[in-house]
Simulated scan of single mutants.
Amino acid sequence: MKIEMDRDPKVEKYKRYLLLERGLSANSIDAYMTDLQKLLDFMENKGIDMKSVQTVHLEEFLSELHDKDISPRSIARIISGLKSFFRFLVLDKIRPDDPAELVEAPKIGLKLPVVLSVEEIDSLLAVIDVSTAEGTRNYAIIETLYSCGLRISELTNLRFSNLFFKEGFIRVEGKGSKQRLVPISDVAIRKIKDWLYYRNQIPIRKGNEDILFVSSRGKAISRVTVFYYIKRYAEEVGLQKKISPHVFRHSFATHLLERGANIRVIQEMLGHEKITTTEIYTHIDRNFLRQEIIEHHPRS
């Protein structure tokens, strides 16, 4: 039988810590809780109490994950979450020691994100039927994702009160409720205005009046819905790449870098706290440059 996390006061206190002290988003907290549930299930099966967990138990737990063919990257993420949880237990004096302190994460290589070319993005947009409300909305969504380099949660939460079209900016609420101003292209502004013609005809549910992108039922469009349409359009155009809403954010950053934008500017646009997070795009840029040289070099 599963340990009910919501009924465990220690876990509830940890959730509040993640929200209030660390300022994590609801999606990030859900991910932490999902990974923590895996450990709680393991402990339940082994008959181990939270206060009795030792490093050897955690290593056995991680070994089981490895046997289930969970990727090293996912295991590294789970370890990071467990370290955060046990540090909290020590901080809150629930435990005197940290059994996760000596647990090492598996080494993982640099994973370069999937990136679409400008031509691929244009071909994907070209298959959208903009004679319908749904198609007009979806075109505006993809154009905004790409033009502004938004996370999917930032797009689904985008509000009228955060649009400053005259100034050419939108205000985005990112991770940890941190806000930033992002330039928006004239094309994206035009496509959003096209969508507004249809949106104004939809009865909007209470509490969604300020939300820009809504469903036909008048509620904020979901992440799942955006993902579904993007996959559908990619299949229609025959794209072989593994595509998701985040691919447009990666493509936005990569295209800026390829065209000479300063990496600090890109960091600000993406809302990355650390420059090291943005630096992954310099690896993509180097790959692009190498490809260009190999393709055009007289000795190749």
Rank of each mutant, 00 (worst) to 15 (best):
N162W: 00
W195P: 00
G168T: 12
V114W: 00
R159C: 13
V118S: 10
K111M: 11
K178W: 04
I141Q: 09
F169A: 01
L124E: 10
E173C: 13
I141Y: 07
D194G: 08
I142F: 15
T144G: 02
I108Y: 03
K193T: 12
F169T: 02
A133R: 13
K178N: 02
E143F: 11
L112P: 11
S131F: 05
F164N: 11
K175S: 04
E120H: 07
E134I: 14
N162E: 13
F164P: 08
V114G: 04
P183W: 06
I121F: 01
S153T: 12
A133D: 14
F165E: 08
V172P: 03
E154Y: 01
P183Y: 04
G149H: 07
E134M: 12
I184G: 04
K178A: 05
Q179H: 01
I108T: 15
E119W: 00
S185K: 07
E167V: 03
E134T: 14
R190P: 00
L155R: 05
R180P: 05
V172T: 08
T144R: 01
A188F: 08
L145E: 08
T156R: 13
I189P: 04
G149M: 09
G168H: 09
E154H: 02
G149V: 01
E134N: 10
E154P: 02
S153H: 08
L110M: 13
I128P: 10
F165A: 10
Q179I: 00
F165K: 10
V182D: 03
E104A: 12
E134V: 14
L181T: 10
L145D: 10
T156C: 13
V115L: 10
G149I: 01
E154S: 02
G149E: 09
L124C: 08
R190E: 15
N138I: 05
V130F: 02
T156A: 08
E134A: 14
P183I: 11
S185D: 07
L124A: 10
L181P: 08
V182F: 03
A140H: 07
I170K: 06
I121V: 15
I170H: 04
E143I: 04
G176L: 05
R137Q: 09
I121C: 07
L145N: 11
K107D: 07
V115P: 11
A133H: 13
G168E: 14
R159H: 13
P106E: 11
I184N: 04
Y139K: 15
P106V: 12
C148A: 15
E154F: 00
T144V: 05
I141R: 09
V172Y: 01
V115N: 10
R180V: 01
P106H: 06
L155S: 02
L112F: 05
K175D: 03
S177V: 00
E104Q: 14
L181M: 15
K175W: 06
D186I: 11
E143H: 11
L125D: 06
T136W: 07
S177K: 12
L158E: 13
P106F: 08
P113D: 05
I192H: 03
K193H: 10
V127K: 06
K178R: 15
V118E: 14
Q179P: 00
I152L: 15
F169S: 04
K191R: 14
L116F: 13
I121H: 03
